[in-house]
Design a protein around this nucleic acid. Sequence first.
RNA 1: UACAGUAUGGUGUAAUGGUUUAGCACAGUGGCCUCAUGAGCCACAGGUGACAGUUCGAUUCUGUCUAUUGUAACCA
Length: 492
Amino acid sequence: MKNKFYITTAIDYVNAEPHIGHAYQKIVADVLARWHKLKGDEVFFVTGTDEHGKKVQKAAEKAGKPVEKFVDETAKKFKEAWKSLNIIPDRFLRTTDKDHKKVVKEFIEKCNKAGDIYLGEYEGHYCTDCEAYYTERDAPDFICPVHKKKLDKLKEKSYFFKLSKYKKFLLNLYKEHPEFILPKARRNETISRVKEGLQDLSISRTSFDWGIEFPLDKEHITYVWFDALINYYTATRTKGKEKFWPANLHLLGKDNTWFHCVYWPAMLESAGVKLPITTFNHGFLKFNGQKISKSLGNAISPKILVEKYGVDTVRYFCLRHFPFGDDGDFDEKALIARHNNELANKLGNLVSRVAGLIDKNGIENFDWKKSEEVIIKRNISLTNINLFTLNLKKNLYELSNLVQKSVDGLIEEFKFDKALNEIFAFIDVCNEYVQSKKIWETNDKKALYELKESILKVAELLSPFIPESSEKIIKQFSAKKIKKGDILFKKI
RNA sequence: UACAGUAUGGUGUAAUGGUUUAGCACAGUGGCCUCAUGAGCCACAGGUGACAGUUCGAUUCUGUCUAUUGUAACCA
């Protein structure tokens, strides 16, 4: 039977345009989705946009557009950005979608039936100019950090969710299912914060109207977070998709950890819905060493980066250059170096020289399982299968299988950088093989067969990461007559 | 301020309480080769933040310091 794999990304808030930080997470999701498909799993991959809330309403006002039009336009930009990166979700969900609104309302009613929602008063320190509440930390001495005015103590009627009730449940969840919060550092952080105690959550608003109507009271709209989180569940409430719940993996940035690891499981438990299996809370990208922010003006559109460097190079770099989970730096110089050295010189050149040799000399089909061993002088790591040997003796067939196993294991652990490193170590071995066999002199057709098979293996392993180029390689080397093709990666 | 994490050659990273040479990649230097995208192969050089401690022995464990990152609830 096929395994099912349901993966989601954070849905992006449409008050600003997509940048490489958003893209990073979507690339990872797409790689995982493709990899699971390759393994034969039945995959459901959902991403989308979060479109309600006051900030969006304000951004629309500022742009001088009706909110509906504004969100349509911004959502489109996100969609297009993912398309340009070859990120292909099975559904792009917008929180303004009809089915989502319906599911949210039903969800809230379920929580209400469970006795977890009550009417109360939200009290906070409010700046009338900002139209926003500030916490004591953001505004010490209760002075608005923007307007330097004294904040008003304000009370507002609001419905609350009994989050405090779920403290024990949550702590138990983290204990029983450590994989619920990855990586570990984020789990520890969350545990210690939850231990300090939980306050009930204000989940409705009356001060503006851009949101989903609160089903228990028409005077209220639903607080954005309560609405947004439910999107993951919504996507599985359509025909044929029900079986995908619970989600196998929610990918999210570390700024979202609290919402996904505390609010979300409590909400689901309240509504009587199964919990997702894993949330992976990754770090942020910098851009050329600087934090990405509007004010710095460095929030460059992913589309522009793709035009500049190519889809596969951007995808490759994002996964290769930094360990997934920590913060990373999208450094353009490093990207160019990796493009030239790794994609062009190692992979591109190997493909080109082998294709050229086959084109000229032909190839002889044989059982390469029985081909002779090569001594691999390079210290190929193969971390996951505990083979850390210098002067390893294997033939290319055996080695490619070891690499495959190692890569599979590493991807399951979210160690994409290492997985790619191993694939490229194998590419190095192939280049050494051409050299040591002096194929251009010997015209060794059997060796060329081995190399053909090895390159096909490499292309398969790389296909989740760099789908476009991998497809080209597979096409080129599966042909009856292998020909020297076009250059795969032009140097930058 | 509190709590937590990190600190490895020019850069990005890997590993280990002790195989008398801390691995890999890029950049650097020298050589070989010419099938290939001035690519490929071989070799050389360069490193464990600071100060103590535990130990026969620490890069690896402990402490202090310094630097840096994260978290500290309504921020999508």
